[in-house]
Write a protein that binds this DNA or RNA. Sequence first.
DNA 1: GTTAAGGTGTACTGATCGGTACCTATTTGC
DNA 2: GCAAATAGGTACCGATCAGTACACCTTAAC
Lengths: 191, 191
Amino acid sequence: MRPNKRDELVRKALKVFYRDGFHATGMDKLVAETGVSKTSMYKHFRTKEDLILAALRLRDENFRNWFMRRVEELADTPADQLISSFDALGEWFAEDGFRGCMFIKAGAEFQEKEHPIHVQAAEHKRLLLEYFTDLARKAGAFDPESLGCQILLLKEGAIVTAVLLKSCDPAQDAKAAARVLLENALAAPIQ
Amino acid sequence: MRPNKRDELVRKALKVFYRDGFHATGMDKLVAETGVSKTSMYKHFRTKEDLILAALRLRDENFRNWFMRRVEELADTPADQLISSFDALGEWFAEDGFRGCMFIKAGAEFQEKEHPIHVQAAEHKRLLLEYFTDLARKAGAFDPESLGCQILLLKEGAIVTAVLLKSCDPAQDAKAAARVLLENALAAPIQ
DNA sequence: GTTAAGGTGTACTGATCGGTACCTATTTGC
DNA sequence: GCAAATAGGTACCGATCAGTACACCTTAAC
């Protein structure tokens, strides 16, 4: 039961869950895809739910690390970083295997508010909200909580729209919107 | 095979699909919930997919009818209607059985872009985009396509956030953002 | 009254679901 | 070298999946 074996299983499971969905992915498919036996799989993960939670934890770590790092590469000041977030998103949307946000999907497939998977998906969004709010505060926004939440709304909306509509360019529209909102939040103490 | 019987089946199936999800809802559960026999169910709907598509069609009709009617009740001018959209959304979020957007969930559970269910979910979003773009045009926005899409982003983001986060009030934040975006779109031909 | 047609229910199909019993192969401690 | 423990594989569990074969029962035509 080497721990790196476990990590490898989580990595592969994450790929399949992201590609095919949670309910649509059976443990048999995962076992076939990872090349490991069912017994070994259940030695590492007590239930399918445990495996999903582990995959979500990895995804949260991967995504936020990549996102924040990329945003830092793209811009220097907090204000510019808020705006550049949507360039990073645009890059993500253009990736080959892009299938939307895993946490939106997790929240959609496990809807009960107390369900551990739903809770974990919510936690991911909370951390992103915190990130945006923080940037908004550092940028000097009058009401950083509001601006942070608005940026988050634009981000989530852009993801959903990128999945479902090909007719518009959500990342660019969201970026333009964010610019207007930021400008407004910096200029007007009373809107 | 009375047609109103079929409608009743669609109505009940819609309720269950919305509450429990698509993959997580078996035909046996639907049969039990509707009180009809399995044979009758399959006389009305050739496959589960057909039933899902019928449910989505009904949902699209119901939701857009309700939404547009409610927005018209809340405001008179196109500009005010764009803003009041988010009050209507807020009312929806506060409803007892609110479980997010059925089409986001459908698109999340059936991800292949050519899948009939995914296509139908996309069509719903396209119609809403058209609605917002139309309002933006009537309101006199400089670039109604962009503003319409931005309003749509805010709406989708608000829905997702309403499902996953209790810490903020997405409908109100989205409304405030929409106000800023609208003002900007009316005032500034070059932003 | 008889017969044909179509709606309805029961009971089933093979496949797959999440999960486990049990056996074997390998490693570990001494 | 040997025993104990642990990792891994096969083959299965009952439940449920989407979908169907077939008998039953009502209705309508004549």
